[in-house]
């Protein structure tokens, strides 16, 4: 286990370095941050002075090395648009995104697994039919349309839930949470549901397919022949065997929920990192864009590592030395 873990950990560094290079390089050649900072009337001297101050006159590779060097110390530079440290800006908004992502992930996983198991075991029940049809709708509609639909029904027509913002937040250390206030909960429900819709259908269909296969396996037949209670067979003996592929997909999905909440955050004007990213693109705010991509790729790498470790815990066969029978 330790060896496996260390090997996975070692592979993180090259991945992160390559991502850092790509994101830095890509944004370096897009747009002109100086123009945005100085405005139309700036003189050539002003430009040169600011460029020298910010290090933009140095060769590209030196700028990159400096970027990496500072990044390692937790210094991601200063936003060219807002003029504040990038890390502060991102940390300020990260809790909003993470709360939204984790809550919708929790919705998607719990409802997806429960409904997946049910649709597999009782395919002809009314709830199964409704959820199978519903899952088709949720998977075919674009995400923003679901968001707009939810706003129309619950905010405009019924007026139950707010259509934008995060509600009141409470500060715990540097983390701000909306989950401790009533208005916070009200505000998070719609975006979380809209973000969860697609993931839920994916998990539901995956769990259902895996469950149908597992229920026909010999060990389930043998477990039934031994007279084990149904609940134990369904939710322990069978469900655990469906989990390996589900964990893979769930891990990737959690990554994309965090990274690509951009659309949902825009629709609901959610003050998260995605919205910050969209606004930064407009002003070619290189430090923020590069840092955002770095953080997103780091989240992906970290989730993948956790997923690998979960495999290890789930399936004892992977723990066998070398895997040779």
């Amino acid at each position: 286990m330790t060896g496996f873990f260390l090997r996975r950990l070692a592979s993180v560094f090259p991945v992160m370095l390559v991502t850092a290079f790509l994101s830095f390089a890509a944004f370096h050649f897009i747009g002109d941050p100086l123009q945005n900072m100085l405005g139309q009337e700036a003189s050539a001297q002003d430009r040169a002075r600011l460029a020298a101050e910010l290090g933009f006159d140095r060769p590209f590779y030196i700028q990159f090395l400096k970027f990496v060097g500072f990044a390692l110390q937790g210094d991601f530079g200063i936003s060219t648009r807002v003029g504040r440290p990038v890390l502060d800006l991102i940390l300020e908004r990260l809790p909003a995104t993470l709360e939204l992502a984790l809550l919708s992930f929790f919705f998607a996983m719990s409802a997806g697994i429960a409904l997946g198991v049910m649709t597999a075991l009782r395919p002809s029940s009314a709830l199964s039919r409704v959820s199978m049809t519903g899952s088709l709708i949720a998977v075919s509609l674009p995400n923003f349309l679901i968001g707009i639909g939810l706003i129309y029904v619950f905010s405009i027509k019924l007026g139950w839930l707010p259509s934008f913002g995060r509600g009141d937040t409470v500060k715990i250390g540097w983390w701000t949470t909306g989950l401790l206030t009533k208005s916070g909960w009200k505000a998070i429900l719609l975006p979380a549901i809209s973000l969860a819709a697609y993931q839920l259908t994916l998990i539901l269909r995956l769990v259902r397919a895996e469950m149908l296969e597992v229920m026909h396996s010999d060990y389930i037949r043998f477990a039934r022949a031994r007279g084990l209670p149904k609940r134990l067979i369904y939710f322990s003996y069978a469900l655990k065997n469906t989990m390996v592929p589900v964990v893979t997909v769930a891990g990737l999905q959690l990554g994309s929920i965090i990274a690509f909440a951009v659309v949902t955050e825009t629709v609901f004007q959610w003050p998260g990192v995605g919205l910050l990213f969209i606004n930064s693109i407009r002003y070619s705010d290189v430090p923020i864009m590069a840092t955002y991509l770095l953080i997103v790729s780091f989240i992906f790498v970290a989730i993948n590592m956790v997923v690998d470790c979960i495999y290890y815990l789930l399936d004892p066969r992977l723990r066998a030395v070398g895997g040779i029978k």
Partner: peptide, 20 residues
């Protein structure tokens, strides 16, 4: 099942749940 009648199946490789 189990209490009064038990069954042994053909393939011992697949009769046991691999994750328990």
């Amino acid at each position: 099942r189990g209490r009064r009648i038990s069954t042994i199946f053909q393939d011992p490789l697949t009769s046991l749940n691999p994750l328990f």
